[in-house]
């Protein structure tokens, strides 16, 4: 396999851009109630910020930002957040994923639905981010020596 070409300019540019893309990804997830956005789009942006460093810096450098081992637990955490939200609603006496029954005191049902949607959007974002990084990592494994 060909040695990866190392360019300090590309690496510096990616390092400058990556935190802002990640911040924008979280903004898209959290602000998805008021503007176009949500878990899927924000998760894709988060994955883009990590993959930028992965492409520019190679495996060894990018493992300082996010290690490959974390991918599977993070994806599982995202699915678990979604599923447990539904199960908590069932235990509180509602249907599966009926956010109006979530046991948060002092809120009416409509605002409970607001926060329930926010929780599951974060779960979706984590899963999409982890899976997109996972697909990339598994495809290029053993092919770059940077």
């Amino acid at each position: 396999m060909k040695e990866q070409f190392q360019s300090p300019i590309v690496l510096l540019g990616s390092r400058l851009l990556s935190p802002y893309i990640m911040l924008f990804g979280w903004y898209v997830i959290i602000h998805g109630h008021y503007s176009p956005g949500g878990g899927f789009q924000g998760g894709a942006l988060l994955a883009a910020s990590v993959l930028l460093i992965r492409v520019a810096g190679g495996t060894r450098l990018s493992s300082l930002q996010l290690r490959e081992v974390i991918n599977t637990p993070m994806a599982t955490l995202g699915v678990a957040i979604y599923f447990l939200t539904g199960v908590v609603a069932v235990l509180a006496g509602g249907f599966f994923l009926d956010y109006g029954q979530l046991p948060i005191p002092g809120l009416e049902a409509a605002w409970l639905r607001y926060y329930g949607i926010l929780i599951i959007e974060v779960g979706i974002g984590l899963t999409v981010m982890a899976i997109l990084i996972m697909i990339y990592d598994n495809m290029v494994k053993g092919e770059d020596h940077a």
């Binding site: 899927f40 697909i135 495809m139």
Partner: peptide, 20 residues
């Protein structure tokens, strides 16, 4: 379509994995 796009990307990843 929002969900279909993301699922499409994931299944495209599976297709390329099988090709590898």
């Amino acid at each position: 379509m929002l969900t279909a796009i993301v699922v499409g990307v994931a299944t495209l990843g599976v297709a390329f994995t099988l090709l590898i």
